[in-house]
């Protein structure tokens, strides 16, 4: 980094240059948990480019309310019978203007979709990948688990991890979404928890993370080679970042900030990111994230 860069920090050279924008036919749209649905749509060009941790922007075709598209994380990249990526799945919590209308969309209807967007998770040598999810934040982790376990290749090489663990928490059992999908991933260690104790550990996902870190340390003498990746509500991500820091393990967070375009042109989705000189600058979550090194985030 040059001195100039520090004095006048430039936005990163990340662009949505692999994205496409087109109509995609809905294949199915089904409820998977309390207030939580999974929509599958056909978009071979997008699916073939999509990497774990990327997202798409979505709008219901020919509907102007809502006017603005919404970002949704890609949950699954599904191949056809020849193994060619064909469909994308997004899992969404029904809570806003778009999602309350999206549940009414039926197979055969079309969605306006643009993506894949964001940088996703970059493959990095990892002995033990610990994925920590809260609420609807589990969505990026199916494809990431498969990639690190060597079960899927998303058009790039990824060093395999010896172990991949999912720590997934929600307020209650009914809100845990896609658990069967995770449990069907061979070799993935799934640890669940709920705030009310209705399923799995009764307590916070950070309790589960600490236990996984402790077990790992006991088995290997140290946590060297452990990488934590995290997605969920901001207070939970901040807590996971703090645990990771105190255990001296690398931690990346996938942020979910409100977006208006997803492609870097509106500067809505900014988050405070530390610079090399210790100051902070607003970075666009869509094109410069959504995955950031947790130690660089200035939490609110």
């Amino acid at each position: 980094m040059s001195t100039d860069h520090c004095e006048n920090p430039l936005h990163a050279d990340y662009y949505a240059d692999t994205s496409v924008h087109h109509s995609a036919e809905v294949i199915e749209n089904v409820q998977v948990a309390e207030g939580t649905w999974r929509v599958r749509f056909r978009c071979p060009e997008m699916a073939s480019k999509c990497k774990p941790g990327q997202f798409i922007m979505l709008k219901i075709t020919d509907r102007d309310d809502p006017l603005i598209g919404r970002p949704l994380a890609v949950f699954e990249i599904t191949p056809d019978e020849h193994g060619v990526p064909t469909d994308l799945d997004a899992v969404y919590l029904v809570k806003g203007n778009l999602t309350t209308r999206l549940v009414d969309v039926r197979a055969g209807q079309t969605l306006d979709v643009w993506g894949p967007l964001g940088n996703g998770f970059l493959p990095q040598p990892t002995r033990h990948l610990i994925m920590v999810a809260g609420g609807i934040g589990q969505t990026p982790f199916v494809t990431l688990a498969k990639e690190y376990l060597g079960l899927a290749n998303y058009g790039r090489d990824c060093p395999q991890a010896d172990k991949v663990t999912l720590c997934y928490g929600a307020r209650n059992e009914g809100l845990l979404a896609g658990v069967e999908t995770f449990e069907a991933v061979p070799g993935l260690d799934v640890r669940l928890c709920t705030d009310d104790g209705s399923l799995g550990h009764h307590g916070l996902v950070t309790d589960v993370l600490k236990q996984v870190l402790e077990d790992d340390k006991q088995a290997h003498g140290s946590n060297e080679g452990v990488r934590v990746v995290c997605c969920g509500p901001e207070p939970m991500m901040e807590a996971v970042a703090a645990v990771s820091k105190s255990w001296e393990v690398a931690c990346q967070v996938s942020l979910e900030t409100p977006m208006a375009c997803g492609i870097g042109i509106c500067f809505t989705c900014v988050t405070k990111v530390l610079q090399d000189d210790g100051s902070w600058d607003y970075k666009r979550t869509c094109v410069e994230g959504p995955v950031f090194d947790a130690s660089k985030i200035v939490w609110h």
């Binding site: 309310d65 603005i68 409100p258 607003y282």
Partner: peptide, 23 residues
């Protein structure tokens, strides 16, 4: 630029207060 929230959707429109965020 300005602090988030920087945009909010309204009926058939979008309010923004980006604040000329530029380098």
């Amino acid at each position: 630029g300005n602090a988030p929230h920087r945009t909010v959707e309204t009926s058939s429109g979008l309010l923004n207060s980006i604040g000329l965020d530029n380098d």
